[in-house]
Amino acid sequence: MLRVLAVDDEEPALAELLFLLRADPRVRSAEGVLEAAEALRRLGLRGPDGAADVDAVFLDVRMAGLGGPDLARLLAGRAEPPRVVFVTAHAEREEYALRVPGLPVVDWLLKPVRRERLAEAVRRVAELVAADRAPHPGRCGVRSPADGVAVEGEGGTRFLPVADITRAEAHGDHVRLYTRQDSHLVRIPLSTLEECWRAKGFVRIHRRHLVSLARIDALRADGGRLTVRIGASVLVVSRRSARELRDRLVEKATTNPPVNGR
Rank of each mutant, 00 (worst) to 15 (best):
E11V: 09
L14H: 12
A15G: 03
A15M: 07
R22D: 12
A23P: 09
R26T: 02
S29A: 06
A30E: 04
A30M: 01
G32E: 00
V33E: 02
L34H: 07
A36Q: 03
R41H: 01
G44A: 14
L45H: 05
G47R: 11
G50A: 12
A52G: 12
D55M: 05
D70E: 15
L71C: 00
L75P: 14
R78H: 00
R78Y: 07
V85C: 00
A89Q: 06
H90W: 03
E94D: 15
Y96I: 10
V100F: 00
V105P: 03
V106L: 07
P112E: 02
R115N: 02
E127M: 03
V129K: 10
A131R: 07
R133T: 06
R133I: 08
A134W: 08
V142F: 11
A146F: 11
R158H: 06
F159E: 14
T166Y: 02
A170D: 09
I188T: 08
L190I: 05
S191R: 12
S191G: 05
E195I: 00
V203I: 05
S212F: 02
A214H: 01
A218S: 13
R220P: 05
S233M: 14
V236F: 01
S238K: 00
R239A: 04
K252R: 14
A253E: 02
V259H: 12
N260G: 10
R262C: 09
